[in-house]
C-alpha cells in the first residue's frame, strides 16, 4: 500500500506509535531477561520488579561459566553444528535433484516430504526411543544429531531447491558444453553461487537444532551428554530460586541464536515462504 498523496499527520503519528508498540512488545521480555541476569543476588528480592536495576554485576555470568553449563553449551554446539552441516550437504543434493531434473516419482517424493511436516512429530517419539535404545545409543549425542538431521531435511531440501531454482540452468549447461563433467560444473560454477543459500540453510537448521527440547529430554538423561535446553530445564527444576544464574544462562543460550539470526535475516522471507511449513 504505497502511500499516495499526503497522509494525515495524525495517521502518520499513529503509524509510528503502532510500530513503537510492536518493537516494545518484541524487546521487553528480552530486556527483562538481561536485566535480571545482571542484577546482583542481594538485590533480586528487593528490586525484582524494578524497571532499571540500581547496580549491575557480571557475577551471575561468571558463576554460570564456571559450572556444568559450559559442558551443556559445548554439547549443544556440537549437536547443532553437526546437524546443520550434515543437513545442508544432504539437502543440497536433494534440492539439486528437485531443481534440475524431471523424473518419475517426483510428485510422490515431494508429497512424502510434505507429509513429514504435517503429522504430529510426537507420534514418533516412542518408536525413536525404542530404536535408539535397541541400538545402545541412548544418552549419546550422535542419536540426537541423526534425529535432528532427518527432521530438518524436508524443509532444508525445499529451501535449497528454491536457491537452485534461482540459478540459471544455462550456466552449468554452458560449462558442460565447454567440456566440464557435471561434477566439475557443479564445483566451479554452481557451488560459488549457492554459498549464500547454503549459509541460510545452515542458519535455519542450526537455530532449529539449538532450540529442540522434547526429543533431547527423551533421549538424553545423563548429565554429561545433556544439551543446553535440557541442562537449563534441569537446573530450573533443581534450583528454582537462583534467578540471576538461570537468566544469565538464558542470555548465553540466546547469543548463538542472535548471531545466526543476524546472518539469516536477509533470507527470512524466502526461507519461510519456500517451505512455508516451518516455524
Amino acid at each position: 500500500m504505497a502511500a499516495l498523496g499526503r497522509p494525515h499527520p495524525a495517521l502518520v503519528a499513529g503509524k509510528y506509535l503502532a510500530l513503537a508498540a510492536y518493537v516494545a512488545f518484541a524487546l521487553f521480555p528480552l530486556y527483562w531477561l538481561v536485566k535480571i541476569a545482571v542484577t546482583p543476588d542481594r538485590l533480586i528480592y528487593s528490586e525484582g520488579t524494578r524497571y532499571w536495576p540500581s547496580a549491575a554485576t557480571w557475577d551471575n555470568f561468571r558463576e554460570v561459566l564456571g559450572s556444568d553449563f559450559l559442558r551443556f553449551f559445548g554439547n549443544s554446539v556440537i549437536v547443532s553444528l553437526s546437524t546443520a552441516a550434515i543437513t545442508a550437504v544432504i539437502a543440497a543434493g536433494g534440492g539439486y535433484a528437485f531443481s534440475r531434473f524431471d523424473f518419475r516419482g517426483k510428485r510422490l517424493v515431494s508429497a512424502l516430504l510434505l507429509l513429514t511436516q504435517m503429522f504430529p512429530l510426537l507420534i514418533i517419539i516412542a518408536p525413536i526411543y525404542r530404536i535408539v535404545a535397541s541400538l545402545g545409543l541412548l544418552n549419546t549425542l550422535p542419536s540426537l544429531i541423526v534425529t535432528y538431521t532427518a527432521f530438518n531435511i524436508p524443509f532444508a531440501l525445499f529451501l535449497m531447491q528454491s536457491f537452485f531454482d534461482g540459478i540459471p540452468k544455462d550456466l552449468e549447461e554452458a560449462a558442460m558444453i565447454d567440456g566440464c563433467t557435471r561434477m566439475q560444473a557443479l564445483r566451479k560454477v554452481i557451488l560459488p553461487l549457492t554459498l549464500p543459500g547454503l549459509g541460510a540453510t545452515l542458519g535455519f537448521v542450526f537455530t532449529a537444532a539449538w532450540s529442540e527440547i522434547l526429543f533431547a529430554l527423551m533421549l538424553i538423561r545423563k548429565e554429561e551428554s545433556m544439551t543446553f535446553p535440557v541442562g537449563l530445564l534441569n537446573f530450573v527444576s533443581k534450583f528454582s530460586v537462583d534467578w540471576g544464574q538461570m537468566m544469565a544462562a538464558g542470555v548465553l543460550a540466546l547469543v548463538p541464536s542472535c548471531l545466526f539470526f543476524a546472518f539469516i535475516q536477509r533470507y527470512l522471507v524466502q526461507g519461510l515462504t519456500s517451505g512455508a511449513v516451518k516455524g
Binding site: A26, L30, L33, W210, S211, L232, A253, S257, F260, Q265
Partner: peptide, 17 residues
C-alpha cells in the same frame, strides 16, 4: 530486524522468560 527477533529466540528460552 527488531520485531522479527522473537522468532529466533529458542522456544525453551521463550517459555522460561
Amino acid at each position: 530486524a527488531l520485531v522479527f527477533l522473537p522468532w529466533a529466540v529458542p522456544t525453551f528460552l521463550t517459555a522460561l522468560t
